[in-house]
């Protein structure tokens, strides 16, 4: 990245950073002035202190959560992509699958999670499945929409060359769907940490979700806040990761037209 655009970005981010600092300061001030007890609402400094003290513990439990979120996201990307392509290629698959995929989104995943735990035990698998359930739908829809949005004139052009349907799919339809697909991936990736935590809440012996349940029971409220902070940092990192992959593999999708 050129230094000039880097500087520009910093300037652009300045208002958001200032606002965050201001909010933190107000929060700290309010907690001190009104002498709010720590088990109700700890101030940012107290949270930071606990964060530093428990950094080892937090890291230890953040790793399985991140692993489940990432594995679930990749699983969702693969299943979403495949079902999207299938629905696009086969009208029969569309009529058979699409209604059920939409209906599946009305199922409360939170209610299914305990069943998954009963089936698959306390290991990472049920958590990964919860994440997949959360994430695959936006990816499927994005793939279907992206493939459907292909300019029919482009398909005609490929036909005029004498290209096979397979070539047309891989040279024109698939790359043309990438802007939609990345939109779906960016949306889905924001769900995957939530999915992993919900999976852990239901039944686990490690992970940040497990730690949260314990800390809540033991009134370790500042550490609960520290865990929330770690989770949201994790979510933001995953989002930036997807954005980076997009920038590296399909920079043209980011250009305004």
């Amino acid at each position: 990245m050129k230094p000039r655009t880097l500087k520009l970005r910093t300037v652009r981010a300045l208002p958001a950073i200032l606002l965050a600092l201001l909010a933190l300061a107000a929060w700290e001030l309010a907690v001190r002035v009104f002498a709010i007890p720590e088990f109700l609402l700890p101030g940012p400094s107290a949270i930071a202190e606990v964060f530093w003290e428990s950094r080892g513990l937090l890291l230890e439990h953040a790793i399985p959560t991140a692993g489940e979120a990432l594995a679930g996201f990749l699983g969702a990307a693969i299943t979403g992509l495949l079902s999207g392509v299938l629905i696009n290629r086969s009208p029969l698959a569309e009529r058979a699958l699409y209604p059920w995929l939409v209906a599946s989104q009305t199922l409360p995943v939170i209610a299914i999670a305990p069943i998954l735990v009963t089936w698959f035990g306390y290991g990472p698998l049920p958590k990964v499945l919860v994440v997949v359930l959360f994430c695959f739908f936006p990816i499927t829809v994005a793939t279907v929409d992206g493939l459907r949005a292909t300019d029919p004139d482009l398909i005609r052009l490929m036909r005029s060359f004498g290209a096979s349907r397979r070539k047309t799919f891989f040279m024109v339809e698939a790359p043309g769907a990438l802007p939609f697909l990345f939109g779906g991936l960016r949306l889905a990736v924001t769900y995957c940490v939530i999915g992993a935590v919900i999976g852990e809440w239901v039944g686990s012996s490690k992970g940040l979700g497990f730690l949260m349940i314990q800390d809540k029971a033991q009134f370790e409220i500042p550490r609960l806040f520290a865990e929330i902070a770690v989770l949201s940092a994790m979510g933001v990192s995953l989002f930036l990761f997807v954005a980076l992959v997009q920038r590296l593999t399909a920079p043209w999708t980011l250009r305004e037209r």
């Binding site: 300019d151 004139d153 482009l154 005609r156 052009l157 490929m158 036909r159 005029s160 060359f161 004498g162 290209a163 070539k167 047309t168 040279m171 024109v172 790359p175 043309g176 990438l178 399909a250 043209w252 999708t253 250009r255 037209r257």
Partner: peptide
């Protein structure tokens, strides 16, 4: 189709391909 070369009314250049890759599209296809 496939016996003659046809240029449609809009240029239909692919934004994910460079100029040279757009020119070679028909051959690759």
């Amino acid at each position: 189709p496939g016996a003659v070369a046809y240029m449609p009314q809009s240029d239909l250049l692919l934004p994910w391909r460079s100029v040279v890759a757009n020119v070679s599209l028909g051959l690759e296809a």
